[in-house]
């Protein structure tokens, strides 16, 4: 197959970027999309040119590193598929393909197609966990969790943190990412003690990071390689509302002496 690529090249965070055009003459339909980029980079290196920087690691669709806006769609044309599991047989001989990085103010571009997604980590830091220090756990079977709850929790927990939801959203909103974590923990009995505190702090962090709001376009769900549903966003909002209505000021500790 012959493929023409228009790839976003940007030397550094502050540099101006632009689309560069490359042509690859011998692309096998069995190649993965990233393997095609490997081939491109090998050719660039052999020609003494700077190869394209892009994020990738496991290439099994689970680590969440890969991040490419392919022909205007996050992770490309195939539903429920991360860039690394997209294969060239999804394209035709002679196709032109546009490849851009995730774009959002909260995801600054570091180089070419590599962006900084640490904002997502900071949302987790704001409360996306159950405070369970090592050592104090009781027997795992003492907590009974109905199967449907465990399944719903798992559906949301499947998030790989790739940021496609932000990339695909016209508002650059991280609602699906945040909501997935809130839903995962909110479906489980272990997640209840911190449930309402968590939603307030995580949503606040989402705002601080400069993500946009949710207009329920549904683009995130469509782009999500794990097909996480925007139903999680409803759940997050419900919890947020409840949390606001029921919040009590935290007692200030007074020390004697």
């Amino acid at each position: 197959m012959k493929i023409t690529l228009h790839v976003w090249r940007q030397a550094g965070p502050k540099a101006a970027g632009k689309l560069e055009t490359y042509t690859l003459g011998h692309v096998s339909p069995d190649m993965s999309f990233l393997e095609m980029f490997d081939v491109l980079n090998e050719e660039l290196v052999e020609a003494g040119k700077e190869p394209v920087a892009f994020s990738h690691d496991c290439r099994e669709g689970i680590c969440g590193s890969c991040a490419m806006m392919i022909n205007g769609a996050a992770h490309g044309p195939m539903k429920g598929t991360a860039t690394c599991q997209l294969h060239m047989r999804s394209f035709k001989d002679g196709d032109e393909i546009w490849v851009e990085p995730w774009r959002a103010r909260a995801f600054p571009i570091l180089k070419d197609l590599v962006v900084d997604r640490s904002a997502l980590d900071r949302i987790i830091q704001a409360g996306g966990y159950i405070s369970a220090n090592t050592g104090g756990a009781r027997d795992a079977n003492e907590i009974l969790i109905p199967k449907p709850d465990a399944d719903s929790a798992m559906d949301a927990a499947a998030c790989i943190g790739c940021g496609a939801c932000v990339a695909a959203c016209p508002n650059a909103s991280a609602s699906l990412f945040t909501a997935a974590k809130i839903s995962h923990l909110g479906h489980l009995p272990q997640g209840q003690p911190e449930r309402f505190r968590r939603v307030l702090t995580m949503v606040e962090q989402m705002d601080i990071e400069g993500f946009g709001h949710c207009t329920l376009y549904g683009e995130c769900q469509e782009a999500c390689p794990k097909l996480i549903s925007i139903d999680t966003i409803s759940r997050m909002n419900r919890d947020y509302l409840k949390a606001t209505l029921t919040k009590r000021p935290e007692p200030t500790v007074e020390y004697a002496g």
Binding site: A150, Q190, G191
Partner: peptide, 19 residues
Amino acid sequence: IDQAVAQGVPFAREYGGLL
């Protein structure tokens, strides 16, 4: 296993709620 469950790892469950 105890530790992971306490953290909210959604292991597969039976209908009765056991692991």
